[in-house]
Amino acid sequence: MELDEKTFKELIHNHRDLIWRICSCYRLNAAWTTEDAFHEVLCNLWKGLGSFDKRSSERTWIFRVATNTMISLTRITSNQQNAQPAEHQEPSYNNEPYHDLVGMIEALPEPNRTIINAHIQGFSHAEIAKITGLTLAAVAMRLSRSLHKLRKQYNSK
């Protein structure tokens, strides 16, 4: 896609909610706000815009870039203490069972966590396959196993 500020602006306006949601579901160091993460994702989207060839949808591409950015930021900040949820002020996060489920999803290894997050955001199996580079069968298997694992953990509480 052409490096064009107008195109980029339209793209971000159209998908700002999705980007925000991805940023807010990763725990970062306390020095990082969701706004910081959002900005970092936008930087990477801008840098990657030139190589976006439209073989996947804009939404799929944005999810992939945003998720990779958040995984990278999580690694950068993981050695530091005081980790807090990026959106710790959100009231629903204090709801105990909900918090448990979010924590269980966070604890999943990659790419299973990405697959579950994409599933929660409403992506189809085919779209998740494009995001992760896995086959359709592999996505279906990992999704099924991850949901089974989450269900088992949840029910054991």
Partner: peptide, 24 residues
Amino acid sequence: QQQKRYPHTEAELDKVILSAVQDG
């Protein structure tokens, strides 16, 4: 998750976009 919205104004989003273009 699906109800969650970007919480800032359009004008603020424009500023962040401009900043990201510069930084990127």
